[in-house]
Design a protein around this nucleic acid. Structure first.
Lengths: 252, 252
DNA sequence: GGAGTGTAAGTGATCTAATCAATTATTGTC
DNA sequence: GACAATAATTGATTAGATCACTTACACTCC
């Protein structure tokens, strides 16, 4: 039943890479559907529980999306070098602050690089995202959160450093959950408008090929966001699953 | 057969977190063995293929280690917020350089923080690691690579920023594979001695509570390592799986 | 007694084949 | 034409059995 000469310990690992190849060679894009689990099992001459393990692995790395009753879909175009751990739940406030510290270190640097190395089409894409944000900032659904993610990710991408880009993408998606929890159309509208204003400045600086301004604006942007979180915390609202209030202010 | 009132779509995801709880509540440490897959299946009242999907997920996130014929072992004490994608194979040289660019941005910063905030016991641990490296640097096995990882990780940890620490750990383990491939006891001995020398300086600066020196020494350390890779590349040795030589020198 | 070998128990890996559950498209009715 | 019932598709889970790898123990032979 196994006609290949190669020994294959860990069939599921082997199958994972085969499915990755399948996605690549068929040029499947995010949203596209893969063959059904049964079809895949037949195609690779394995039983369904086995192909299932391989699919779970790919699901854990964020490459695919499995929807009961519907099918298996491609989630990301290309592989990430780094991922946010899908196993971690809600972040403690202390951790959120450290995420922002990390972003304060990385994103201004990326903004500066983007101002130097972004291609014209990348700059155009950035300006388009700002225009999208002009609209989304007024809406009450979560479209702004999505645009916000796209904007930061696009700036990172325009820097030319893939690794740092993946780091930022992972950090952003890490606490995207938190953002949903925080924002029930409260006084956050003002925060949102302020963020949007900062985005404008950063993108303008990049478009003007002014690294120093881009770096500075991004630093300002994230620092202000961090201060907002600090203010929320000291205002008493205990986020995270609590119980861990051993201070030691996050150093930066 | 299911006595809980809660609906559980995605049993495997639920089981993953249950197994995580099991590890936490039993205080299992790296190297400790979990119950067998059969035992776990019985304990949670599910079939073995189901528990298997949950285990694959935990394996993908690096929390556990599954060894055929032997058992299931804890791999990491605590969860990482970020992981290196287990699905990516060998890195292209271009990517390796970008990893080093990322490290050049992050690790000097962490070294500076460590010089400010490291606890006495953390500094002691760093000095102990340097002593271990004194020995490992002479040996031909891969013990030096392990010590090197531990040293960089320990410096990161001493900074107090968990997120940046996890980023560095992920970056280090990402191309640990590459290091094995590069080093067949060739002229790398000199590289190794030089790295070890730099480590000495960095740790001394941290112990001396001198952030500026620590930052500078770490910058120097990684930059030199980066230049070594660049030299290797221009010397002709094509690493990675090739075919992707569209230059655009990695910006930093 | 010690070194090596062989065997058996434990454990992960995979298979088969069936049933349950959720989604989606279709069809039919009003 | 809108809505509801239904059928087909597809993922989720089960059950028990068999294969393959590791490990430890006992046994043999020197």
């Amino acid at each position: 039943m196994d006609q290949s000469g190669l020994s294959k310990p860990n069939l599921s690992a082997y199958l994972s890479s085969q499915i990755q190849n399948l996605i690549r060679s068929n040029d499947l894009k995010p949203g596209d559907r893969l063959p059904s689990a049964r079809a895949l099992a037949e195609q690779f001459n394995v039983a369904t529980p086995t192909i299932r393990e391989a699919l779970r692995r790919l699901q854990a790395t964020g490459l695919i999306d499995i929807r009961h009753g519907s099918g298996i879909y491609v989630r990301r175009q290309s592989d990430r070098l780094l991922l946010s751990n899908p196993g971690v739940g809600a972040l403690e406030t202390q951790t959120i602050l450290q995420v922002l510290d990390a972003r304060t270190l990385i994103e201004p640097h990326l903004a500066g690089l983007a101002a130097q190395f972004a291609t014209p089409s990348e700059i155009e894409a950035l300006q388009d995202l700002v225009r999208q944000a002009d609209i989304a900032v007024e809406r009450t659904d979560d479209s702004y959160i999505r645009v916000n993610y796209e904007l930061h990710a696009a700036i990172a991408r325009a820097s030319g450093n893939l690794v740092l880009t993946h780091i930022i993408e992972s950090l952003l998606e890490m606490y995207s959950t938190e953002l949903h929890l925080t924002d029930p159309r409260t006084g956050f509208a003002v925060t949102r408008a302020r963020d949007h204003f900062h985005h404008h400045i950063v993108v303008d600086a990049i478009a003007a090929r002014d690294p120093a301004s881009a770096t500075g604006a991004m630093t300002e942007h994230i620092n202000v966001a961090r201060q907002t979180v600090v203010a929320q915390v000291s205002a008493g609202a205990p986020s995270g699953k609590g119980a861990d209030t051993n201070g030691t202010a996050s150093p930066l």
